[in-house]
Simulated scan of single mutants.
Amino acid sequence: MIIGISGMISSGKSTLTTNLVKKFDNSEMLLEFNENDEVFNTFLRWFYEQKENLTIGFQTYIIENHSSIFVKKISEFHEKNKKNKVKGHFFLDRFSLEHYIFAKINLAHKEEKYMRAYDLAFKELITESELPDLAIFLDLNFETFKKRFFKRDRSVETDNWEKNKNYFETLYKNYKSIFIQLCKDYNLKYEIIDTNNLTEEQVQKEAEKIINYYASKNETNN
């Protein structure tokens, strides 16, 4: 299965995705972005520094970059899995559809034509083949988000917290509801894990139960 690990910034997606790849044989993952992606990191820094007139360029770069890498990686993954008796899963650390959430929030202050333009690009670039068979949403409250946000200590984020506090609050307030609506619009299966009082190990156990349940259903249907 293609499985999207979803959720707000600092919800634990990357940690869970990495651990699940280790747990399930012959599985692979695609991170949301490469830590050494100079273009992404520059855009991100400019975004948090609130440079003007870069929002739609940043959002378009993200979906174009993620989409092109996904197509290559998933093709390689399917080819390798043909040779394995035990079929692995392909995990996505946030999948392409979720970037629509950021665009909707980030372009809200712009003229409507910008969101219309992004909509057109999004619908052309994101195809059904990129959507996961299952999405697991890691839910958390705002205080937990803030605690984890500062704990992971990415300077580009924490150094600009006060400048972007309203943005993070707005993103948090809308993220889950827009995610659920997108899943309904695109007919995606999704499950939600409340991570607030769970350890990383407990979150992983919950995710494993969900994955095994859907995997067994797929085998039965096939």
Rank of each mutant, 00 (worst) to 15 (best):
M115D: 01
F91G: 05
G4A: 14
L92P: 04
L138Y: 00
K146E: 13
I74V: 13
E208K: 11
S27Y: 06
T195M: 13
F33Y: 00
K80W: 00
Q204E: 10
E128S: 12
Q50C: 04
G7I: 09
L171F: 08
N218M: 10
S27M: 09
N53P: 05
A108H: 09
D153R: 13
I136N: 07
Y167G: 03
N187C: 04
F179M: 08
E157D: 10
T55R: 09
Y172G: 05
G88F: 11
Y100C: 03
I74F: 15
V21T: 14
L97E: 02
L44F: 15
I9T: 08
T17I: 07
E124P: 00
M115P: 03
S14I: 00
K147D: 08
I56P: 03
T18Q: 12
A117Q: 06
R94G: 12
K80G: 04
S67R: 03
A108L: 10
R154Y: 06
E208I: 02
I63F: 15
A121G: 01
R116C: 06
G88D: 04
L120C: 04
N36A: 05
F95R: 01
Q181G: 12
S27W: 12
W161H: 02
I193Y: 14
D25M: 15
L125C: 04
N174K: 14
N160Q: 10
K13C: 05
E49H: 02
F77V: 04
F95Q: 08
M8P: 08
S68W: 01
K104G: 03
Y100A: 05
N41S: 15
T55Y: 14
E38R: 00
D185I: 08
S216R: 04
E112G: 01
E98L: 12
V86H: 06
D119T: 02
T220F: 09
Q50G: 06
Y186V: 10
D185P: 13
G57E: 09
E79M: 03
F95I: 01
E76N: 06
E64D: 12
Y175N: 07
F150Q: 07
N221L: 12
N141Q: 08
F149T: 14
E98G: 12
V39A: 15
I136L: 05
F47T: 03
K176C: 07
D139W: 04
I178F: 02
K82L: 11
F77A: 05
I105R: 15
R45S: 04
A117V: 00
N65M: 00
T15G: 11
Q59S: 10
G7R: 06
K73E: 13
N65S: 04
F43R: 01
K176S: 14
K83A: 08
E76Q: 15
F137A: 10
N34K: 11
D153N: 15
A207N: 07
G7Q: 07
F122I: 01
G57C: 07
E219M: 02
D139P: 11
M29K: 14
A103L: 04
E143Y: 02
E206K: 12
M115K: 00
G4V: 11
W161D: 02
E206G: 03
Q204K: 08
E200G: 01
E219R: 13
C183N: 07
T170M: 05
K51V: 08
F150I: 03
K123S: 08
I180F: 07
E201S: 13
